[in-house]
């Protein structure tokens, strides 16, 4: 990127992210529902979202009656990750498993999740939920920052190939 070509506010591009890491990226949004069919209908017909049940063993457990629903909010890959920049998927999650809207944030793959969480609690974050399913895709913790903003922190398993379009970073 030619930084001299940036003529609009703030007169510089965002900083570079040269580390092979997705730490701190907001990768999705989790939206609670009370009535499953009503919520699904709202997002499908108001915003044109596409919906499918979250594959089993990935993240929060669910039931047939109150499933976790993955929503494509714009152009998406076969994995349902977005295929163009600038937007993310959402998940509709039953209120008993997600009491208020929360972001789905990726944290470092190279640091144990407990250590990441410890660095946050030192600064006033609170742990509000934990879960560990049998499969390592579910290595996550839900925290709240000092102002009550809720974040599901997800540590990606080693199965990432770094070929995935969403795993790109600022290489030289």
């Amino acid at each position: 990127m030619n930084e001299k070509s940036v003529t609009n506010y703030p007169y510089r591009p965002p900083k570079k992210y040269p580390k092979k890491s997705l730490h701190g990226r907001v990768r999705g949004m989790m939206i609670p529902y009370d009535e499953y069919e009503r919520a699904k209908k709202f997002y499908v017909y108001t915003f044109g979202w596409d919906v499918m049940r979250v594959p089993q063993g990935v993240f929060l457990e669910d039931t047939d009656e109150r499933p976790n629903v993955m929503c494509a909010t714009g152009p998406s890959q076969v994995s349902w990750e977005a295929s163009v920049p600038g937007h993310v998927w959402a998940q509709l999650v039953a209120r008993e498993r997600c009491s208020k809207p929360q972001v789905f944030m990726e944290v470092s793959m190279d640091v144990p999740l407990e250590d990441t969480v410890a660095s946050l609690t030192e600064r006033g974050w609170k742990v509000v939920g934990n879960s560990e399913l049998d499969e390592d895709w579910a290595d996550f913790t839900v925290v709240e920052d000092p102002d009550g903003n809720r974040e599901l922190l997800w540590k990606c398993p080693d199965s990432r190939t770094w070929e995935e379009p969403e795993a790109d970073y600022d290489k030289d």
Binding site: P10, P14, Y17, G24, V26, H87, E106, E166, D170
Partner: peptide, 20 residues
């Protein structure tokens, strides 16, 4: 807030994450 790699217009350069 930029949360990862971006373009000069302060939009993400890489798919499947957002600024806020």
């Amino acid at each position: 807030c930029a949360t990862g790699p971006g373009n000069a217009n302060w939009e993400p350069r890489v798919p499947s994450f957002i600024y806020g």
